[in-house]
Each structure stands twice: as structure tokens, then as C-alpha cells.
Amino acid sequence: MRRILAVFEPFVLALLGTVVLASVLPVRGTAVPLFEAITTAGIVLLFFLHGAKLSREAILDGARNWRLHVTVLATSFVLFPLLGLGLVSLPLPMLDGPMAAGLLFLTLLPSTVQSSIAFTAIARGNVAAAVCSASFSNLIGIFTTPALVALLMTLPGGSAGVSLGSIETIALQLLLPFLLGHALRPWIGGFVSRRKKLVTMVDRGSILLVVYAAFSAAVVEGLWQRVSGETLALLLVLCCALLGLILALTWALGRLFGFRREDAIVLLFCGSKKSLASGVPMAGVLFPAAQVGAVILPLMLFHQIQLIACAVIARRYAQDETAD
């Protein structure tokens, strides 16, 4: 557990520091277009590198364990959204439109990649299958998440969550860089694989840029005047309840479908996680700038809770395996 916390603690602190900085010194006026351009460049580079990292061999190998991967995808894009719809239908007056939208939005996102694989490895699970499942989830999520937003979410004012302009932005900022990076993998794949620290810096740096821009816009529009301590506490409770439910359901599905222990661990971790790396850039594309800060707040809370909970669970699995 200490190894996991040591890996993620600096980034968690950086996220919190970014929110504080945006609250004290938000981007305003003429600096906004410049910062938006820098943020867009970071997102494009992020998805380009993700495309370059995904090998075709992983896709082919993963297709062989299709029952596991279909179950992970169904958990991420069917079961999770159903739970999200149930949460936002609760009569909770403290949650306004953007905050409730954020709760639902986080349930529509793909799984994480790095942490899902890391926790699977610690728990002595099927690491190769975890790589495939997490990669498939992120690849499919580029198409599926915007489609689910359009189907299940309506923004204040009655407009659909995905407009023609949003689709164009997704294609240009997310899908096209991803496909280009994957097409260039035979030439740059080795370079990217050898520069893991650089990729991590781009990954996390892009997230911090988007978080800063999102919270800057939200602070300018009065986010912290609308979000009370009671609302934050309620969000925390709902995120904990959501994670507890999905962990119990993925564990139960692993037993119901008769998966081997190693594959059940993959379902538990890949099926219960939601990607901050994908969610923050997508929120910046799919929602109005003034709403993004409130929309991603539930996702940021859920992200920290899932890391802590899954670290404890992975360590417990590892101890049980050693005892056997």
C-alpha cells in the first residue's frame, strides 16, 4: 500500500494545489484565450501519446479473453451509468444542476489504465488481461462516453450534452491525435516506451492544465459561493457509496460468471475505476467552460477515494495469495 500511496500522493497534492491556485488566482480577461490554446495543445499531445502506447499485439491478445473484456466494458458503460442515473434521481436539493451532472458524468467514463494495471499486479491478478481491458475501455470510451452524454444528459437550458461543435472538437482534439499516434507507433513506439517519465509528465501536466482552466472559469462564475461544506460532504458520501456498490457488484459478477481468481481481480479493478485522465479533457470539450469546474468536482473526489480503497483491497488480495 505504501508503494501505491507514494506513487500517487504527489499528484493528489498537485491536484489540490491546482484547485487552490485557481481559487486564488483564476485566469481572467485576455489571458483566457492564450491559456485555452496551451491547454488544448496539452490535450492533443496527451491523446497522441496514448495512441502511440497502445500496441496492436495487445489488441489481438486481448480479444482472446473476450468474456472478461465484454464484462468489464458492460460494467463501465452499462452498469455504472445505471447506478449514476439512480444517484441523480434521488431527491437531494443540495445538489444543483452542474454538480448532479458531474455525478452522472463520472459514471459514463472509461476505466483507468495505469492504476488498474498497478493494482492488478499487486493483487497477483492477470496483468496482461488488465492491460487489454483498460486499453479497450479507454479506446472505446472516446466514442462511447460522448454518445452516453448525448443520450443521458441534458445541460441547463435544455440543450443536449453533445452538439455538432462538440463532436468536431472531440474528433480533432481526442480521436484524430489518438489515431495518428497509433498509426505512427511503428516509428515512435520505442521512443515513447523508453520515455515513460516524459509520458507521465505530459499525462499529469495536461490534467493539471485542464483542472486549472476549469476551476478558474468556475471560480469567476462563483463556484465557491454555490458549493457549501454540506454539499462537499454529501458528494463525498455519494462517491463512497457509488464505489462500494460497484466493488460489490464486480466481485459478485466475477463469482457468478465463474472467472478464475486472476481474471476476477481484473474485473474488480478495471470495472470499478473511472479515469481522471480521460474525464477531465472530455469534460472540457463537452460542457460549457463555466460549468466544467463543478462537473469535474465529483470525479476528482471519486478518483482519490478509488485509489485509497483499491490500494487496501489489492494489498489484502496479495496477503491472501501469500498465505495460500
Rank of each mutant, 00 (worst) to 15 (best):
A41N: 09
I43D: 02
I43Q: 03
L45K: 05
L46T: 12
H50G: 10
A52Q: 12
K53M: 09
S55K: 14
R56H: 08
E57Q: 15
A58N: 13
I59F: 08
L60N: 09
L60D: 08
L60M: 12
A63S: 13
R64A: 10
L73G: 01
S76L: 01
V78S: 05
L79S: 06
F80L: 04
P81N: 09
L85Q: 08
G86N: 09
L87M: 10
L87K: 02
V88D: 10
L90C: 14
P91C: 00
P93L: 04
P98I: 13
M99L: 15
M99E: 11
A100Q: 15
A101P: 07
L103M: 14
L104C: 05
L104H: 03
S115D: 03
I117H: 00
T120I: 00
A121M: 06
A121V: 01
A121E: 11
I122C: 01
I122A: 00
A123S: 03
G125M: 03
N126F: 01
A129I: 03
S133P: 07
A134P: 10
S135K: 05
S135D: 04
N138A: 02
G141W: 14
I142A: 00
I142P: 02
F143M: 08
T144A: 11
T145M: 08
P146S: 02
L148K: 06
L151S: 04
L155V: 11
P156R: 13
